[in-house]
């Protein structure tokens, strides 16, 4: 299990390095994610969603709290030592490298691969349904295909935490559904702990059994997605959904 306990972060007084969209307030997060689960994270712009992911990945340092994976605290580890893979909204792929190399670089940055590693990449490509596209450059792929390549890289890295920072934002409705189905399948099969940030409540409904609502740097509620979105009494959630 991935457990975020009392994780605090204070924004610097000047420009925030965490996320330029985040407001200047202190955050305090408490979240648990089970193996094989995608926990959706929703909330207004600037509420601290990306800050939570940046803290887990190590891009910014918490002032207090713990990030536990199966009871091992990773909050003191360097970025590269954390068992974490991030998938961003865009720029996940290096534009000058083909699909195969973009995935390979996730296993071995020197690109000196053995036969078994190559097989892993082909298997991952098959998993994300991109067989035969390994020689293509990112510019020759659709938005959805690029995100699939990023997911294939996450697969070959075999890290237990998958952080998805609005990976669906640039995709059309049909493509979103396809990627969500793929995500669910991969996360369950690999027993990953995934956090998915999305601005669309429908994505949370489709992707996650549980959803966390964040506001002003705090997790206000974690609940069954349907219950949280359809039957919540919290004014903040109603405001967010435009129901207040």
């Amino acid at each position: 299990m991935l457990s975020i306990k009392q994780l605090e972060f204070s924004f610097p007084k000047s420009k925030s390095v965490a996320n330029k969209n985040d407001a200047n307030f202190n955050t305090l997060f408490n979240v648990d994610v089970n193996a094989g689960e995608i926990l959706s994270v929703i909330g207004p712009s600037g509420s601290g969603k990306t800050t939570l992911l940046n803290l887990i990945a190590g891009f910014i340092q918490p002032s207090a709290g713990q990030i536990l994976i199966d009871n091992n605290d990773i909050s003191g580890l360097a970025i590269a030592k954390r068992p974490v893979t991030s998938v961003f909204q865009e720029n996940n792929l290096f534009p000058h490298l083909d699909v195969f190399t973009n995935i390979a670089i996730g296993i071995e940055p020197s690109l000196k691969l053995n036969e078994s590693q190559k097989q892993q990449i082909f298997a991952a490509l098959e998993n994300v349904e991109l067989t035969n596209l390994e020689k293509r450059l990112p510019k020759a792929l659709s938005g959805g295909q690029r995100q699939r390549v990023a997911l294939a890289r996450a697969l070959v890295r075999k890290h237990s935490v998958l952080l998805l920072d609005e990976p669906l934002a640039a995709l059309g409705p049909a493509m979103r559904e396809e990627i969500i189905d793929l995500l669910k399948q991969l996360v369950e099969a690999e027993k990953m702990h995934a956090l998915l940030i999305s601005h669309q409540p429908e994505d949370a409904l489709k992707a996650s059994t549980r959803t966390a609502f964040i506001n002003q740097g705090k997790v206000l509620k974690i609940d069954n997605t349907k219950r949280l979105l359809k039957h919540s009494d919290l004014t903040e959630i109603k405001n967010y959904l435009g129901e207040a």
Binding site: A57, F59, I79, S86, E90, H96, L97, I105
Partner: peptide, 26 residues
């Protein structure tokens, strides 16, 4: 260079040479 590339480089443990080859030189 998109900030995500630097973040990926730190997650993927790129050496100085690999950062140059895959991120800076392109």
């Amino acid at each position: 260079v998109p900030e995500q590339h630097w973040r990926l480089a730190s997650q993927l443990q790129f050496s100085s040479w690999q950062q140059w080859k895959h991120i800076e030189w392109p």
